[in-house]
Nucleic acid binder design. Structure first.
Lengths: 143, 143
DNA sequence: AAGTCTTGTAACGATAATGGTTACAGCACT
DNA sequence: AGTGCTGTAACCATTATCGTTACAAGACTT
């Protein structure tokens, strides 16, 4: 199955907060741009907060960035929104037969390969920051 | 969510067929090593067949490899078992607001980044063949 | 030709995650 | 006190997975 859109929503939220740095980024405001429900936005900002990417406080309107734009990578967001639990992107079929040469070795053999594939993906995400996203949109808008 | 275990089962099946090249790899036989149901194995061998990786025929016991071990990459298996539909690993939140600078550009901005991350993952899978898996298990078994 | 074994598939259920929604408690500010 | 916001719990519809049963259809043996 595909990786949850929470990830893309998280990126959207952070980018929008950066654009709206002179305004108040309430969950209503963010939800309007993402085109979803404010409660869903609050769930995700809650995750971003737990990961130390943003600051939000109960009762106080608006979410703000907790770090510089250039210090938030897409990998940070990816991990913050729990898009892959236990950090295991690949689901390996459990308990193969120990009586079989292949069965008793297959997991140990493929897990490192799958991990390195996952790592390759994460490395790409690690090298893109929210600042890059913001700059790209600036360019597209001709700002 | 995690990537379906169909992928790891597919690898297991192909590896086991290679090991069992003097025997008959029926769905019962394969299911015993994978530790699952024969019907599930037949579903997956059906997918592998459609992708041209194996040969199976109704009524005839056993699945055989359609290519050399060194000509089957993990990417072939990954794509064969439809683990990611539409080839879109990342699910991007649909229909952001076109009224917002961020909303109307975010998709166009992040989709290429997510694609390149996906591509990095696939590249790793492309460089490992079933032959590599077989050799590794031979080594582990001291053969 | 009958019988047996196998594959191919349809159908169903249990489980889990997602995305959306409602509702409301609790906090902060006016 | 009143208003507005966040944090969260609860619930639902939808979807995919994995497992399982059941059976039709093909292939081979005797």
């Amino acid at each position: 199955m595909a990786i949850s859109s929470r990830f893309s929503v998280g990126i959207h939220i952070l980018t929008l907060i950066a654009f709206n740095k002179d305004g108040v980024s309430s969950s209503d405001y963010l939800a309007a741009s993402v085109n979803t429900n404010p409660a869903l936005i609050r769930k995700i900002t809650g995750m971003l907060k737990k990961a130390g990417l943003v600051e939000v406080r109960p009762g106080v309107a608006g979410t703000t960035l907790a770090r510089k734009l250039s210090d938030i990578t897409l990998l940070d967001v990816y991990q913050a929104v729990d898009v892959v639990q236990d950090n295991e992107l690949f689901n390996v079929h459990p308990s193969p037969s120990p009586k079989c040469e292949v069965g008793r070795n297959i997991q140990e053999t493929i897990v490192p390969i799958l991990s390195s594939a996952q790592l390759a993906l994460e490395k790409v995400l690690q090298h893109v920051t929210i600042e890059d996203i913001v700059k790209d949109i600036h360019m597209k808008e001709g700002i």
